[in-house]
Design a protein around this nucleic acid. Structure first.
Lengths: 151, 151
DNA sequence: CATCAATAGTTGTATATGCAACTATATTTG
DNA sequence: CAAATATAGTTGCATATACAACTATTGATG
């Protein structure tokens, strides 16, 4: 296996980094400007919405949002303080907790979604045809899958 | 213009965020483990290598690496302290400075490159065919260009 | 089953980075 | 050309997040 990327792939990598930084920056600002929760909070809460019974173990959440355990602890502190989720002890395993979405958390998601959706659409999605979006997704899914199996 | 992304595009967006986080995390760890400069330092120095006379105004650098002015000031402090670049006053405009790559900075880049290249290759590039890399790059370039003209 | 190892989560501490306010210099404008 | 405005960069402060050490609990092993 060749240890070095060619120009084409290297260029793709560098664009990936730069585009990510500017997109996150832009969309996060749009959310803040509209008096909504920041992007990282959204990402956490949306994982809860999609989870069975709107709850996830903290370590699962940390994994899904790619955050360290300690980072997650503090983020959950803030979200709990803001009333958007609550910790619930787990009777099955008394070491751990569930993070459970609250009604206010769900409301925060609903409020933010139109802004977030518009940001994704205008800054990102409009630039991808359906075919391009499929290539894009397929590639990133492959990358993520390979990481899972390695570690 | 439809204000909401469809499922396909939304999925691409979420993969984009997650894949970015895990890739940066992995590659940065590889660099640190190999006793090289961290990824963000690399990104700064590589912009200098590619700039005319290996120098850029600080604000240009901030722009290229998508960092706030104050963030850049501090990053440049660290890099200058480590001897990897130096600030040079600009005779044309005495408000500002150039960041100029030093020999040690160039050496740090050379040392890190094999590790970084292997990381890009193994974690990212192997998953993109040439065609996919072209689609990927084209899309991200389009995104970046649109942001430039808007702001 | 008693000990040892592994796991879930938290906390102390260090680093990173943004915003707003500030200094110094340059540019514009009446 | 003097005053007002804009720009380059830095600094004080607040927030974010990682690592390592810690507590509590669970699981594995002789």
């Amino acid at each position: 296996m060749n240890p070095k990327p060619d120009e084409l792939h290297l260029n793709a990598w560098r664009l990936f980094i730069t585009a990510h930084a500017t997109l996150i920056d832009t969309i996060d600002r749009e959310l803040i400007a509209a008096d909504c929760i920041p992007l990282h909070w959204y990402d956490v809460l949306v994982e809860l919405v999609e989870a069975p019974a709107h709850r996830l173990r903290l370590y699962e959440l940390a994994d899904k949002v790619v955050l360290s355990r300690s980072g997650l602890t503090r983020l959950v502190d803030k979200l709990e303080n803001a009333g958007l989720l609550k910790r619930e002890p787990n009777p099955e395993d008394r070491r751990g907790y569930y993070a459970v979405l609250t009604e206010a958390g769900y409301a925060a998601l609903r409020k933010a979604w139109p802004i977030y959706a518009a940001g994704i659409q205008n800054s990102f999605a409009v630039h991808l045809s359906d075919d391009e979006a499929e290539v894009f997704s397929r590639v990133l899914r492959k990358i993520l899958k390979s990481r899972q199996t390695e570690e």
